[in-house]
């Protein structure tokens, strides 16, 4: 991977990194795990003039408890997420979604922020982040802001991030009440693949075991991850019984707006995304019920 004049810089602060990006007059890219970026460079689909490596900025590779929830730094690799007991207890669906990215080797580098900013409609971890109602913290030339994950991608390869802005962390909210999430992806193989479709479901149970809150997100069936409120409405107030989950399946299939491509037909995606949603909801319900059992 040789390039004429590409610069590689590894600043020590976010402000400095944002400034470098803002001042760059060519193609500039943030390098975290690099598992998308380096592949694109090798395939000659992009030839950046500037790479800003954020791995050396303090906090970027840390997972910390914050406001009852969790802060995951932008360069935390999937392998660290998978081994974090606190995250796994609160957000098992987010953890399993992060673990879907790539392979064992890729997990040593790949970050969920990178997965989000790459803005693929098939991003493995984004449906789970949306179902979790996760937010991201952003630093840019004008300072720091935060916004919901779902507001970042706007289409394949496109985000709402402004020039010079860097996503520095994912913020997972505090769990209120008894709840759990789950995420399932369909691929023809068992790993190292791009989602044909995926679904993430996050549920909260009240003391009687009824679903009091839910979020349902679908991946790879539209230009962006879909948050299906109608599907969540079906779950709320139910005991997540079989009939409810079958209605969820049907609503999710209807909500999907997939396309035909080399990875699957639209017809197949529409049908299977419903199956993934139903199975994910059942898994989330089982996890939440198990937690309720532990408390009782």
């Amino acid at each position: 991977m040789e390039s004429g004049n590409m610069r590689y810089l590894a600043p020590k602060t976010v402000t400095e990194a944002a400034q470098l990006l803002a001042d760059s007059d060519g193609i500039a890219r943030v390098l975290a795990g690099g598992t998308d970026l380096l592949v694109q460079m090798k395939a000659e689909t992009i030839a950046p003039d500037l790479l800003v490596d954020i791995k050396h900025i303090p906090g970027m590779r840390e997972i910390t408890a914050e406001a009852g929830g969790w802060r995951i730094g932008a360069a935390v690799p999937g392998a660290h997420i998978s081994e974090h007991a606190g995250l796994k207890a609160d957000w098992p669906g987010v953890v399993e979604a992060a673990a879907l990215i790539g392979s064992t080797q890729v997990q040593g580098r790949a970050s969920i922020v990178g997965n989000l900013c790459n803005a693929s409609p098939a991003a493995d971890s984004v449906p789970a982040l949306v179902a979790a109602d996760a937010r991201v913290q952003i630093t840019g030339p004008k300072g720091t802001r935060d916004c919901a994950v779902i507001e970042i991608p706007v289409g394949p390869g496109k985000t709402t991030l402004q020039r010079g802005e860097i996503v520095t962390a994912v913020l997972l909210p505090a769990r209120t009440g008894i709840g759990a999430d789950a995420c399932l992806r369909f691929i023809p193989r068992t790993e190292m693949d791009i989602a044909v479709c995926s679904a993430a479901v996050n549920v909260t149970l009240d003391e009687s075991g009824r679903c009091s809150a839910a979020r349902v997100a679908l991946g790879a069936v539209a230009p962006v991850v879909l948050l299906v409120e109608e599907a969540a409405d079906i779950l709320v107030g139910s005991r997540l019984d079989r009939a409810t989950l079958e209605r969820l399946q049907s609503v999710c299939s209807k909500a999907a707006r997939p396309i035909d491509d080399k990875r699957g037909t639209a017809e197949f995606r529409r049908e299977v995304v419903g199956v993934m949603a139903r199975r994910a909801a059942r898994l989330a319900a089982e996890r939440a019920t198990a937690k309720a059992g532990e408390k009782a």
Binding site: S103, P188, R189, T190, E191, M192, I194, K262
Partner: peptide, 9 residues
């Protein structure tokens, strides 16, 4: 990625 040979798993 899209020419899918079997992987070990």
């Amino acid at each position: 990625l899209d020419y899918r040979i079997p992987v070990a798993s």
